[in-house]
């Protein structure tokens, strides 16, 4: 089944929205999680000369994955991480995450993701452990990374596997008919759609 397609007007609304992202009805997400995920997705892969993640309904995709594909453990981590992230948002900005703006989410996400390579490796290593193995004082941060990394990874998946990006942005050739092993990249351009 194809991803639900939003009409162009709605897409432009989503792309430019800064305050109220709830222009679609989530299957599983709470209003707050929907708002947070929508803004994070937009920050991770924004629209520019090429479409952004909101143009191809990535928040809707992650909502569907959460409800249908995530294991119970993955759902629990995602949900607890979203709550920890929203709490952190409130501490930093003195307002609920459900009222947050794109700029505020970009600032908060940057605080977690703009790390040295060493710092990133330490986080990825820690993420391989179960919650019970994490020092109680680090659990909130651990859960926030569970949430942010799940949003980021599934933003990439949802974006690059989308029909619009696959057909209109990447190089789409469903029936190549031949294989040439060594051709100038300039003759091809963007990466092939898988």
């Amino acid at each position: 089944m194809a991803e639900p397609r939003a009409p162009p007007v709605l897409l432009s609304l989503l792309a430019s929205s800064t305050a109220n992202a709830a222009t679609w009805k989530a299957e599983s997400f709470s209003t707050e999680v929907q708002h947070v995920v929508t803004h994070l997705v937009d920050v991770i892969l924004p629209a520019s000369a090429t479409p952004g993640a909101l143009d191809v309904n990535v928040p809707q995709f992650i909502d569907k994955l959460y409800g249908n594909i995530f294991s119970t453990a993955e759902q629990q981590y995602f949900s607890a991480g979203a709550t920890a992230f929203a709490n952190r948002f409130k501490q930093v900005f003195q307002q609920p995450a459900s009222d947050g703006t794109r700029d505020q989410f970009a600032q908060l996400l940057g605080g977690y993701f703009n790390l040295s390579t060493q710092g990133q490796d330490r986080i990825f290593e820690q993420q391989n452990n179960d919650l019970a193995e994490i020092d109680p004082e680090e659990r909130d941060v651990y859960l926030i990374y569970k949430f942010l990394l799940a949003v980021r990874q599934n933003t990439l998946r949802g974006y690059f596997n989308s029909e619009k990006v696959g057909k209109e942005v990447l190089n789409y050739d469903p029936v190549p008919g031949r294989y040439d092993g060594c051709v100038p990249l300039a003759d091809i351009g963007n990466a092939w759609t898988l």
Partner: peptide, 22 residues
Amino acid sequence: NWTRAIREMSFGEQLKEELLKP
């Protein structure tokens, strides 16, 4: 392909444009 960036923390317009290239 774009999956090379799965285990990273990069984000933003530059990431997107880079991942559209092989």
